[in-house]
């Protein structure tokens, strides 16, 4: 936990939209330690996906500096789990999971072994030779997670991988992710808009603001591991951290909404019904704000 794995220094990203410059990220800086699980939480449109895509090498930055320590040349530096449906429709579950290994020309015998292990780990043994159109949304996302893990990268980048899933599936997959990750010593940067999810998974939560995207606060999550939803939910500490994060975030979300011309009926980000009703649910959706 002492080595710095990712160092991000003053990263700025600007897009040109209809002849005007939009700043998606402004002077973002952070350090992620080796083996650390970091969640980035922020309102939608705050640039968190952009940051992750820059880390994944899918997007360039306008200015700034990113350093990622690549300690084992035999392993890929990072692999990403995408938010949307990203499992190749033309490959079976087995071949989807082995995709990264195949691209790296790993020995076929080893690919078979590794793939079989992860198919089992995500509970898809019966569907190893099924095509994605035969799978449910939750199963596809399992394939996507297994594909990233099977590639055995040093850093995992996860872009709201469970956002599109229903509540039951989400909880199952969060626990599966924890179980697989806890035995792996991988560094994870996980993006979410759910405080709950961040608290369940992360060692550290970073809160982002929007327009332009900057880092606002960092909160350490010193909850014991291994974690499961049932051991976490009842804990006083969990609730305290939830309120701490929500209080930071609420102000942000409120500011963002105010700039869009929306107002609270209760008159602002103080204590009130808005805070109470949001406890335990996903935040940042309009439905939670204008009630």
């Amino acid at each position: 936990m002492t080595h710095d794995k990712i160092t991000i220094k003053d990263v700025t990203k600007q897009f040109i939209v209809k002849h005007s410059i939009v700043t998606a990220l402004k002077d973002v800086s952070m350090t992620v330690h080796e083996g650390e699980f970091v969640c980035i939480v922020g309102p939608s449109g705050c640039g968190k996906t952009t940051l992750l895509r820059i880390l994944a090498g899918l997007e360039t930055m306008t200015s700034g500096r990113i350093e990622m320590v690549h300690s084992d040349r035999n392993k890929p530096l990072n692999s990403m789990v995408f938010q949307d449906q990203s499992v190749f429709p033309w490959l079976t579950v087995r071949h989807n999971i082995g995709f990264g290994l195949k691209c790296r020309n790993v020995d076929q015998k080893e690919i078979d072994e590794v793939t079989a292990r992860y198919i089992k780990m995500v509970g898809l043994a019966k569907f190893a030779d099924a095509y994605p159109y035969q799978l449910s949304g939750g199963m596809k996302q399992r394939v996507s997670v297994a594909r990233a893990f099977a590639n055995d990268p040093e850093i995992l980048l996860m872009d709201e991988p469970f956002a599109a899933l229903d509540e039951q599936n989400k909880i199952m997959l969060q626990e599966e992710l924890l179980r697989i990750w806890e035995g792996s010593n991988k560094t994870v940067v996980f993006i979410t808009h759910s405080i709950d999810e961040a608290l369940i998974l992360a060692d550290r939560v970073i809160i982002m603001t929007s327009h332009p995207g900057t880092f606002k606060a960092t909160v350490d999550v010193d909850l014991p591991r291994p974690r499961t939803i049932s051991t976490l939910r009842g804990k006083e500490k969990f609730n305290t951290l939830f309120m701490e994060l929500w209080n930071i975030l609420r102000e942000e979300v409120w500011k963002a909404k105010q700039s869009e011309g929306l107002t609270y009926e209760e008159g602002g980000p103080g204590t009130g019904p808005a805070g109470e009703t949001c406890e335990g649910s996903v935040i940042c959706d309009e439905s939670d704000l204008v009630m």
Binding site: G57, L58, P76, F82, C103, N151
Partner: peptide
């Protein structure tokens, strides 16, 4: 879908 090309790129194709 562009995402498939992103996946391929990220996975070192």
């Amino acid at each position: 879908e562009k995402i498939y090309l992103d996946v391929a790129k990220n996975f070192g194709a």
